[in-house]
Simulated assay, not measured.
Amino acid sequence: MSLVRWSRPSWARAPLLQCCRQVGARQPRRSLHLAPPFLLDDYIPRYQLLSSIEASKKRSRAYAHLSNCNLCPRLCGVNRYETTGVCLVGADVKVNVIAPHFGEEPCIQGHNGSGSVFFSGCNLRCTFCQNHDIAHQRNGFDLTPEQLAEWYIKLQDTGGVHNINLITPEHVVPQVALSILAARDMGLTLPIIYNTSAFDSLDSLELMDGLVDIYLPDFKVWSTNASRRLLKAVDYAAVARESVQEMQRQVGDLCFTADGIAKKGLLVRHLVMPGKEAEAEAEAIMGFLADQVSKDVFVNIMEQYRPAAHVGKPRKERQRRRQVTEPGGMQREVVEDDETHVRYAEINRPVTEQEVSSVRKAAERVGLWRFNDPPKHDGFAI
C-alpha cells in the first residue's frame, strides 16, 4: 500500500500562521542593520599584535628615514635633524590642533568624536586646499614623537574618543610610527586612522603596516594634467592608485563592531569638483576602485567643495592688451586692467547637485554599493 503525504490546505494553515505571528509578536525584535561580512565581534588594534622584535625594527627604520628622508614620493633626501624638504617640517612634528573632532564620517566620529591630530605642512600644494592655513603654512606647535604619544593617551583617557585620527601624516610618517609605538607602551588601546591625501610612497605604507587600523585616503584627481595643474605633483594619480591598492591589501574592506563604529579597513573619499573634466576624472576613479581595489570598498562622495586657497585669486598679471579699430580703419593697441581674469577659473564655483549625482551614479554603474549615506534607521551609516 502506497503512502500519500497529506498537505494542509491554505484555509487550514491560516489559523496556525496567525498563532505563530502572535507568539512572535511577544518576542523583542532586534535589527542591527549590519552586513554580516563586515561585522566584528570585537577588535584588537594591529599595533597591539606586533612583537617586540617587529616594533624594534620599525623604530630603527623610522630613525634611519629621518636621517635621509626618502619616504614621501618627493624623495627630498635631506637630513631632517638639520634641515627640511618640501614639507618644511624637521625631525619634530608641527601640530596645529589636537582635539575630539565631530566633522568626520558618522562611523568614524561616533558619539564621542574622533581623536584628531591636524599636522601642519603637507607634501602636496593643492591649489584648492580647504585647510590651506594649516597645510601650506607652518602654523602650530612642535612635538617630539614621545610628546605626541602623550597626547594620544589624553585623547583616550580624558576625551573618551573612539580612535586616534592622524590627519595629513604623509610627510611625518617616521615620527608618527615612533609615536604610535611609544603610545602602545603607555597604554593606548584605540584604533589608529591614517587620514591621507593618498600621496604616499609604498615604503612609507610598509613602515605603517601593522600600526594602522583604518586607512582614510582622499583620491583627488585621475589625470596627469590635473595632478600637475591642481596639486603641483605630476605623479599624484599614479602614486594614489598604487597607494590605495596597498592600503586595501593591508587592512581589507571597512568593518565595524555592533555599536556602528569602524574599527579596521579602507574608507576612500572623493571630493567632487566642478566641471565636466572633473566629472570624467571622478568616473575613472570610481571605475578603478571597483575593478582594481574592491567592489565592497566603502566610499564617501563628498560635496562640500568650495573655492579656497589660490582659486579665484587675481592673476599676478592683471592687465590685458587688445587691438581697437579707430574710425577710418586705423588700429591701435589698448592696455587695460582685467579685473575678471582670475586663477583656476574653471573651478572657481561650488559644485552642483547634478555634478554630485553624476559621480554617485557612475559609482553605482561600476558596482560600488557601500556609501557614506544618511542611515534609513536609528544608528550609523555602515
Rank of each mutant, 00 (worst) to 15 (best):
P9G: 03
W11E: 12
A12N: 09
Q18T: 09
C20E: 10
G24V: 06
F38P: 03
L40P: 02
D41E: 05
I44C: 11
I44A: 10
K57H: 13
S60D: 14
C69I: 04
N79F: 11
T83Q: 15
T84Q: 08
G85N: 12
V86D: 02
V89N: 00
G90C: 00
E105N: 11
F118S: 03
S120A: 04
T127V: 15
N139C: 06
G140E: 01
D142N: 12
L143G: 00
P145H: 12
A149N: 09
W151S: 05
Q156V: 05
H162V: 06
V173K: 00
A177N: 00
S179T: 02
A182S: 11
D185R: 14
G187T: 03
L190E: 02
I192A: 01
N195W: 03
D203M: 09
S204K: 01
L205A: 00
M208K: 05
L211C: 07
S223P: 11
A226Q: 07
A226M: 08
S227Q: 05
R228T: 15
A240S: 15
S243K: 05
Q250C: 10
D253L: 05
F256G: 05
T257P: 00
A262V: 05
G265T: 10
R269K: 10
L271D: 02
P274I: 07
G275F: 04
E277P: 06
E281S: 08
G287L: 01
V299P: 03
I301W: 03
M302T: 13
R306M: 09
P314F: 12
K316E: 15
R318K: 15
R320E: 14
R321Y: 12
E326W: 14
E326K: 15
M330S: 14
R332H: 15
V334H: 11
T340K: 13
R343S: 09
A345M: 10
T352E: 07
E353L: 14
V359T: 09
R360V: 10
R365F: 09
W369G: 10
D373E: 14
P374K: 09
A381Q: 14
